[in-house]
Design a protein around this nucleic acid. Structure first.
Lengths: 136, 136
DNA sequence: CACGTAGTTTAGAATCATTATAAACTAGTT
DNA sequence: AACTAGTTTATAATGATTCTAAACTACGTG
């Protein structure tokens, strides 16, 4: 089965119609060995540099949100003036190089086990994310 | 020594002139037993509800940034559409109740020691912040 | 295959947090 | 009192994100 039909299936399975735009975005996001971090603007540039048939910014926003919702992307908790996303959806963390404004993956295996001793009544833990800020 | 002169001294010691506005903001932020979380808008409302002599939004922004710079406030790494700050500047972490959009402090003592085994050449760790998302 | 419809895309407008500007003001010094 | 660097302010500008509503499209049904 080729990639396009794999993406189409993946989209259909999540209740999303496999449109040309979504397939093209899938190709940029998931058709690669390495995972990566991106902002909406980054993604828009990458996608629209690949072909003359442009995808509107609104669609990029819609699609990224849908993919995040479905768990195909993760948003990185970070104080920046724009949102950053990660195609690496495995349980992991991040370095943030404050000076260079660069994110670096920090695998779960590079961080010792994290124990949370405090409990909040009626709530359970959904995720634990660590942000390690770096300086020179 | 009264609080106003304590704040004035604190400001002067950091190279910030103790203006009426900054003192008033100090009173809101630091003249309390409990620490708290706030957005710029929250702070603006609190400050301007306390007296008829209003402080402009621009000054609130300037002051919060200056205080953050000087280490009197911390910004909380979080994906929200606005920035959140914390008057608790001790080394600690946060719960984030996704549904209720509420932040809860998580003291350092409520989290086991965090070990980062990965090293980045030429960089050292500035801070380690944990965000624990909560769900029902 | 044509049709209908719900879902999708799109350009452009609207919103909203934040930052920049530049003129008026003020703390602290001379 | 005068000076100056630092501060405040209203307002404009910016920029990311969301909204809108009209055009388009995937796809099941007849």
């Amino acid at each position: 089965m080729n990639l396009v039909s794999i993406y189409a299936k993946k989209l259909r399975n999540s209740g999303l119609r496999p449109t040309k735009q979504r397939i093209k975005i899938c190709e940029v996001l998931f058709d690669t060995e390495k995972t990566f971090h991106f902002s909406i603007n980054d993604l828009s540039k990458i996608v629209n540099n690949k072909s003359s048939q442009k995808i509107s910014l609104a669609t990029i926003y819609n699609t990224v949100h849908a993919f995040k919702e479905k768990g195909y992307l993760k948003q990185i908790p970070l104080n920046a003036n724009q949102a950053y996303f990660d195609t690496n959806i495995s349980d992991h963390h991040h370095f943030y190089d404050v000076k260079e404004k660069k994110l670096i993956d920090l695998d779960n295996s590079d961080v010792g086990p994290i124990n949370i001793y405090k409990k909040i009544n009626g709530k359970k833990i959904k995720s634990v994310e660590v942000l390690v800020k770096l300086e020179d």
